[in-house]
Amino acid sequence: MADQTISNVLNQPQWRCLESKIEKSTLHYGRFIISPLWKGQANTIGLALRRTLLSEVEGTCITSVKIKNAIHEYSSLSGVQESVHDILINLKKIILSSSFSGIFEGFLSVVGPKTVLASDLNLPSFIKIVNPDQYIATVNKPINFNLQIYIQKGKGYSLKNPISIKQGFFLVDPVFIPIRSVNYSIHSFEDEKATKEFLIVEVWTNGSIEPKEAIKEASYNLVNLFTPLVSQEYQQLKNQLFKEDEKNKELNFIETNSNAISDNENSYNLYNQIFLDQLELSSRAYNSLKKNNINTISDLLKYSYEDLLKIKNFGKKSADQVIEQLKKRFKIQL
């Protein structure tokens, strides 16, 4: 038993960068190896990594712009070669990198005649422009050309209708995805004992994030995705320990009345972590509870039997089922 754990630790898969190059400022490439893996593990990791890299890695983008004197996106600005809409399209192409999340403001203020590039933007010092030579507009008159831009970090892409936006603000339809492409390949090799695999992952990014960082972030996000599944038991364990602690405390300090309350709070916290799946309800009942945003036992506890009956598609049968299950599994009475 002990041997195995040691060898497990020794055989923990390691990952290493094989190659890293900057093909262009907007195209970074990295190749990584993860080894050793048991047979079948390479695909599990590779696939999960590819999918999370493509979908879960965050990027920084210009999300909206305020342009003075522009009535709408399709109007033209005197002295500027591009229409507002063309400027927005060009702004969408600017790649930014930032380590902070939140909404930041940036400015562009130039006096024409001038070709305006991304490098003319004034941004907070922690936001870097990956492609400073990205063309924005050409100003052909000696006029002030001002933009006020808003930058945000995000995941995926956002397509909003401009209904919610104030006048003079234009949405850019940001695409936050910093990963251009991911590829992985599985190779097997012979160990002393068994056939093992190693995984090679190739990542191309748009330059706003190093491939290595991207892999880290993706893995972190992937692990985070699993935490609810893992932490449930942990939480239960932790809560139990905590409860025992409390009880000890109670013994020390003789406070009879608070006992019930804290116990109640504790169990409430516990129920906060238990999801409805545990109740093994019929799918009808489960779905309608979910629809009403009842996800955990604690959410459920806020409802009385009568309240439950008022939920859409939730009949007496379902309610009885809930009561029964709560009683059976958690000894709770609604």
């Binding site: 033209s76 005197s78 070669q81 591009e82 063309d86 052909n140 008159k141």
Partner: peptide, 11 residues
């Protein structure tokens, strides 16, 4: 016409 672009904007 043959000539030189003297001015241009989106209009």
């Amino acid at each position: 016409i043959d000539g030189k672009i003297q001015y241009l904007d989106s209009e």
